[in-house]
Nucleic acid binder design. Structure first.
Length: 115
DNA sequence: TTGCTGACCGACG
DNA sequence: CCGTCGGCCAGCA
């Protein structure tokens, strides 16, 4: 069953909403889970559009593979992304997540196969 | 319609 | 270690 009635963006949002509180994942991990490993850029693009989405998307829980807050400039304030993460107990220093491996949540491992 | 661009990633020298 | 390049593909002028 897995029709493609859902757009790629919508699939990205669905996964993003499943990221547990206090955990983070990467653009590439979400792309890989959706079976489009090479489309990590599209995940970032989807996050950019997530602000206009009707539902709340925890975009601050999505960082790049190095655990760096590369998308911080797309939040209202460049400090907002870090503040949101720290409010969840995620330590951030110099735009980089401390103990990234520990906070990392991999949808490919944590979630069942995509529909 | 064509041709950029982009919150990425991995490979190469 | 560092810079650069190709690939991926949805939006937009």
């Amino acid at each position: 069953m897995g029709e493609s009635t859902d757009s790629f963006f919508h699939k990205v949002y669905k996964v993003a909403r499943l990221i547990p509180y206090g955990r983070v994942t990467s653009y590439g991990a979400i792309a890989a889970y959706l079976g489009a490993k090479g489309s990590a850029r599209m995940v970032g693009w989807a996050m950019n559009a997530s602000f206009t989405a009707k539902e709340d998307i925890p975009a601050h829980r999505v960082v790049n593979r190095n655990g760096m807050l590369t998308g911080k400039n797309h939040f209202g304030s460049p400090l907002l992304m870090q503040q949101l993460l720290e409010s969840e107990g995620v330590e951030v220093v110099d735009d980089k997540i401390i103990n990234f491996e520990k906070c990392f949540w991999d949808p490919v491992k944590e979630l069942p196969a995509q529909e």
